[in-house]
Design a binder for these strands. Structure first.
Lengths: 210, 210
DNA sequence: GACACCTTACTTACTAGTTGGTAAGGTGTC
DNA sequence: GACACCTTACCAACTAGTAAGTAAGGTGTC
């Protein structure tokens, strides 16, 4: 059995990669079974329906967001540093061709059953409100420019980082770094901290951030 | 036959909507046939393989980009006005739940056959270089802030507008307007021209812009 | 004008293979 | 024996694509 990590967890991890790579409708239980090296009905044993599996994957993303929130809140420095940490969290991860989870959920929205649509909406709204809070604090500390509202700035950050990951699929990883730098320059009064200092910044466990 | 618009064109139009809504792998020839009200093999008559159809849809997007380029270059005012016209072109279109074509191509990239992947890369690069040119002109006219490079600013514009359309799927159309306004405020020295003056701006034929 | 011959645009009926999901049973551990 | 976890064998429904035939219309040539 050698369940070092638990088969169920392994299934979810492979499923989330497939969801992000090709979408929910475009991968089959058989694809997943081949990756996990298990029979197809064994997947059904853990997740009776594909909808169950999809919901679990979204829950996995919720946990991923928790990890980001913790990483950012544990960042040394003031609110500005925390916002910067969030914006640059996605940089210099290999993440070749991997798009951001939230973007994947939104784009494949129409292929979801209702329960997954609702979970997508919930996650998006939670993310939006958290980023808006982050921006609000950074604005009141005076480090961030004050054009527009905090909500508008948060919308820019989320949309740009999400779109950037996708552009990188066609243009290569440098395209994402352009966006990440650009977001920071558009928002902060002072220039970005030096970005190409190697892998010293806080890094998350795995795959691309938000 | 009543081919007012041409069956072939009608097939392409429905296919591009499906591609944008659910992705390339997630719609079937039967889905398409039902929409066009024609038999499934009749679609095969016009497009022997799904790949042929996909390539034609991307060519359709190329034409759509041509239309945007023409609309923008025909805009009264200087380079700044042209850039503003591009940024706000996607606003106040109903486009409920419709994401931008380029984003759809990039996100569904991995489900494409090689020829469609290449066409996606080509279209993305053409778009990137055109937007970068637009930004470069607007910068030299002094209307645009000069943080970062023109390429970085162009990357921000494209990514943000693309991500914004997707966020709107989960958060409603207002989320996109937040982004659109935000992009303009992040880039231009002067505040945006009044945006809620009703539908008087240049509008394109149909569905969501880039 | 009438016949031959072509293309375009479709139809119904089919193929081989894949889809999510199920039924029944085997094997281990507590 | 009860449960977790897995297997093989199967199902109906669906997939892209094919085969074969039909109806309409154009374009020659006599």
């Amino acid at each position: 059995m050698e369940a070092v990590l638990g088969r169920k967890t392994l299934i979810v991890q492979h499923a989330e990669k497939l969801l992000r790579r090709v979408g929910f409708a475009a991968f089959s239980y058989q694809d997943l079974a081949d990756l996990v090296e298990i029979s197809k009905p064994a997947i059904h044993h853990h997740f009776a329906t594909k909808e169950d599996l999809g919901l679990r994957v979204i829950a996995y993303y919720e946990e991923h967001l928790d990890a980001i929130v913790n990483m950012v809140s544990g960042q040394p420095g003031g609110p500005g540093a925390r916002l910067r940490a969030f914006i640059s969290a996605g940089e210099e991860q290999d993440s070749s061709g991997e798009i951001c989870p939230l973007g994947a959920l939104q784009v494949h929205f129409e292929t979801f059953p209702p329960s997954m649509k609702q979970a997508t909406i919930d996650l998006t709204e939670r993310m939006r409100s958290w980023v808006t809070g982050l921006v609000t604090e950074a604005r009141s500390s005076g480090e961030v420019k004050d054009w527009g509202t905090a909500q508008e700035q948060a919308a820019l950050i989320m949309s740009a980082l999400q779109g950037g990951r996708q552009q990188a699929r066609a243009l290569g990883p440098a395209a994402f770094d352009d966006v990440s730098r650009s977001v920071e320059r558009a928002l902060f009064r002072r220039a970005p901290s030096n970005r190409d200092s190697g892998p010293d910044g806080a890094q998350l466990d795995g795959s691309s951030t938000y």
